[in-house]
């Protein structure tokens, strides 16, 4: 019981830490890392629901969910990294605060 509680609380703590970092950090890479933190927290919480003291009664459903979730998380991270690289290439900066002048466009160019 106490083991699962530790895992669950850690999971939620990770989620909250990730959320804080997502809002506070300005660098794109840090934002991607923060999202990954949050995902790990959710997976940790989800996998503890599979726990049972009797090894024969382990619930396979959350494991399947976490596996699917990890696959999704890998692909989203890949997309986010590619996008961050493109932003860096086109604007020369990967810090959100410095991207402000690029956000507006005058509606002339393509």
């Amino acid at each position: 019981m106490i083991t699962t509680l530790i895992y669950s609380v850690t999971g939620i703590a990770l989620f909250c830490m990730g959320f804080t970092a997502l809002i506070l950090c300005s660098h794109l890479l840090r934002k991607i890392l923060a999202i990954n933190f949050m995902a790990s927290g959710v997976f940790l919480l989800l996998i503890t629901t599979a726990y049972s003291p009797d090894p024969a009664l382990l619930d396979p459903v959350p494991q399947a969910m976490v596996l699917t979730g990890i696959v999704v998380s890998v692909s989203t991270t890949a997309l986010a990294l590619v996008l961050a690289c493109r932003v860096q290439e086109t604007t020369g900066s990967a810090v959100f605060k410095r991207l402000l002048p690029f956000r507006k466009n005058k509606g002339q160019k393509d």
Binding site: A84, R86, T90, T91, F102, R103, K109
Partner: peptide
């Protein structure tokens, strides 16, 4: 456009 890349991110 750079603005669309930032918006997409």
């Amino acid at each position: 456009k750079p603005s669309s890349q930032i918006a997409a991110f």
